[in-house]
Every structure is written in C-alpha cells, then in structure tokens.
Simulated scan of single mutants.
Amino acid sequence: MDPAILCIGSVLWDVIGRSPSAMGLGSDVPGRISRLPGGVALNIAMTLRRFGLAPALLSAVGRDDEGDALIAEIAGLGLRCDLIYRSDDLPTDRYMAIEGAGGLVAAVADAHSLERADARILAPLKDGRLGAPDAPFDGIAALDGNLTEGLLARIAQGPWLARADLRVAPASPGKVARLQPLLSHPRATFYVNLEEARLLLNAAPGAGPATALAAAAALHGRGAARVLVTDGGRSAALADPQGAFDAAPPAVMVARVTGAGDTFMAAHIAAELRGEQGPAALRSALATAASYVSGEVAS
C-alpha cells in the first residue's frame, strides 16, 4: 500500500504564455497560451501520481464552472480530490505567467480564495477523515506558501500535523517569509531556490550565500532540520544533521520553467519513498526536474 501523502495548498488553473523570443518590459510577441491544472500543491500531487503514488489534496476550489472543470480534470488524473473544500462564494483561483527565451518573464498568482478559506481546508485533519486532535495524521504532508502566514503558524503549533513528515515549499520568493513559523519545526524539510534561501536568511539585496551548498548549510545552521536548495541549472544541495552535499543537474535545453521546483520536490519525496537516500535521492530529483524543464515530461 502506498504511504499516505497529503498535498496542502494551491489548486488552480495555470494560464501560461510561452514564446521562443527574448522579452522585456512591454514586449508583444507571438507564442502559445495554454490553460492547465496547476498550483504548487497540485503540481506536486501530479508528479507523485506519475511515480505511482496516490496523494490526496487539501485546498479550496470554487463551485463555479472553472472549479467544476478543474475538479473533473484532477479526478481524471487519479488524484483524490473529495477532501477539497468547495466554496459557494469564492471563485476558483488562477495563476498567470509569461515565459520567454530567458525563462520566466513575469507571473501573477491569484490565490485569494485559498487564503480566505483559511483553516476550513484543514477540516479533514480534525474531523476524523484523515486525523483528529488525539490521533493526528502521521504520513507525509507537503505544504506550500500560498497558505497564509497565520495558518502556517497554527499548523506549526497545532496538533493536526504534529506527527507528520512535513515537506515545505514557499510557492514564490514573494511568499517565502510566510514560512518563518515553520523554520524551526523538528519534522520539516524545506525546498527552496537560492533566491528564496537568501530571503529566509534575511540577507541584504545582492548579498547572502553565493551557492546552493552554502545556502543550505546556512539555513540548517539557522534551525531548519533539513533543507534542499536549488540554483537553476547550476547545482542543488541538501543539508541536515548528517552534513551537507551538492550535485549538478543534467544539462538540458529549457523549454519551460513553471512548475519545475514543484516537480523537483515531488521527485525527491518519491525517491526517498523508494528507499533512495542522500546523494542518490538528490540526483534522482534533479534528473526528473531536468526532464520536465526540457519538455520531455508532459504537463
């Protein structure tokens, strides 16, 4: 039987515009626009599903036409979505991004419904469906920074996930500060990029650790039990009580970037569930992420 895995956070529609052209402020270029199921929690869940795992989603999705269509697509992927909070008065969230020849040009994440739903998305952890205060969920729980800082603080202090193996992603550099309440959690593993790591370390603009390895070691030194830091096509590193090490990702042509970090995180979780450890699990995650950004893995 697969280990119990929850993906808690954003489940929404990704609207992505991609062009092979280099773009700057005010650019107007030909390209392709697609709408796909997305959001950090859903991206992680979809990758876990590709590895044969069966995660459940905790999130907020509206009872509007967009929400019904999104739930239908999620269910078609074989993901458990019956625990998602469906709101009558909140619209389904959306994410919009523009990608060009140099990677991500700009993005806007509209996760206001998830934020307004707040702790209502955690009801299955309290009412016996997944756990209760005296019998908390004890599997893997992937959290993302689209949850509010207040809710993340309550998760850090509350009983609902006190026994869980927490895997934490910031969602974006603009939301990484929300993770501060979880930074000293003894059961949390953080997945951040180099920019996000510097922000968590409160480094001055243009300062901070120069490499993923240095950043991972610094965050571990600040109290993070375990942390993985990526730095695009350059390197990725892991630091925990056993030490710190890094690895280089495979060199590939970049076809897309949205969802790459989520894919890396899910692939690392899947590798560890297969029994891989340390450098082996890190290399497996890097290989999967490289295949994703190259376009070899379907969205």
Rank of each mutant, 00 (worst) to 15 (best):
M1G: 08
L6K: 09
V11E: 01
W13M: 07
V15H: 13
S19Y: 09
D28G: 12
V29S: 13
P30Y: 07
I33A: 14
I33S: 10
I33Q: 13
V40Y: 00
A45E: 10
A45T: 08
T47M: 09
R49G: 09
L53D: 05
L53T: 11
A54K: 12
A56H: 13
G62M: 12
G62R: 14
L70E: 06
I71P: 08
E73A: 14
E73D: 14
D82R: 06
I98Q: 10
G103R: 06
H112M: 13
I121H: 04
A123R: 11
A123I: 02
K126G: 09
D134S: 15
F137E: 01
T148W: 12
G150N: 14
G158R: 05
R163F: 00
L166M: 02
Q180Y: 13
Q180M: 13
H185G: 01
F190V: 02
V192G: 11
N193I: 09
L199R: 11
L199K: 04
A204T: 00
A207V: 07
A207Q: 11
T211I: 04
A218I: 03
G221A: 11
D231V: 06
Q242L: 14
D246R: 06
A251C: 14
V257G: 12
A260K: 04
G261T: 00
D262L: 02
A271C: 13
P279Y: 01
L286V: 07
A287C: 08
S294A: 15
G295C: 15
S299K: 04
S299Y: 15
